[in-house]
């Protein structure tokens, strides 16, 4: 092992305006309120990150990593949203226009009060496949972002499997043949209404 044990303590100052960036204990992404920019703390450096805010009313915005994905199973490859809906055992109603392109995986970038809720939040949004139309105003309150894109990729398989029908997951051969690949991720915030401790998204009829 190398004996180089130096620890670097880096002041978190906005590279654009020089103001101090408020940061929670576990935050990996910090915001400059003056410049309206987000920065990721990577190996002691501040790297600019794009952050999209989905439109809609809400008391609190939850950050999610959104990763396009492909899944390979023994039954074939899943590349599109309709194919993913089949994998998840959802019945296509035909009432809403399906988004074209690869399906998207939603992984919470914030910490939920309990870890099962963390997986549940990712599972519900991935099943919903909401359109990513940014255009929301700069939010005043965003839950702390504590997971990096690499963490989201690591968690990806568990959340994807959580969306698959229970009967498929009981099949050992299905699990042995299951593999997923993720494209480049982006960070989005989704507004939720705080209803006495439960978070609700009226547009997606989603409660967690």
């Amino acid at each position: 092992m190398a004996d180089d044990s130096h620890i670097r303590i880096i002041p978190l100052l906005c590279p654009e305006c020089g103001n101090s960036l408020p940061a929670g204990e576990d935050d990996v992404i910090v915001f400059c309120a003056t410049c309206d920019l987000a920065f990721e703390i990577e190996a002691g450096k501040l790297v600019r990150r794009e952050l999209a805010h989905l439109a809609g009313p809400g008391d609190v915005r939850l950050p999610f990593w959104v990763l396009p994905f492909r899944v390979a199973t023994g039954e074939g490859e899943v590349r599109t949203v309709p194919e993913f809906r089949l994998l998840a055992g959802m019945v296509a109603t035909g009432t809403t226009a399906e988004r074209t392109g690869p399906p998207l995986l939603f992984v919470p970038a914030c910490m939920f009060p309990s870890t099962p809720l963390h997986v549940r939040a990712g599972r519900l949004l991935t099943l919903q496949q909401p359109p990513l139309a940014a255009g929301g105003p700069r939010p005043s309150r965003i839950a702390p972002i504590v997971f990096r894109e690499a963490d989201a990729r690591t968690m990806g398989e568990s959340i994807l499997l959580a969306t698959v029908t229970a009967e498929r997951k009981k099949n050992r051969l299905f699990l042995e043949g299951f593999s997923c690949r993720f494209g480049k991720g982006r960070l989005v915030t989704i507004p939720f209404a705080d209803r006495g401790g439960r978070l609700y998204h009226p547009g997606m009829n989603l409660e967690m």
Partner: peptide, 22 residues
């Protein structure tokens, strides 16, 4: 923790170890 706050000058600080190990 990843970050701290200096109570004197109110500057946020990130602590980074070699290869991510403090």
């Amino acid at each position: 923790s990843r970050n701290g706050l200096c109570p004197s000058c109110r500057t946020s600080l990130a602590v980074c170890g070699e290869a991510g190990v403090a």
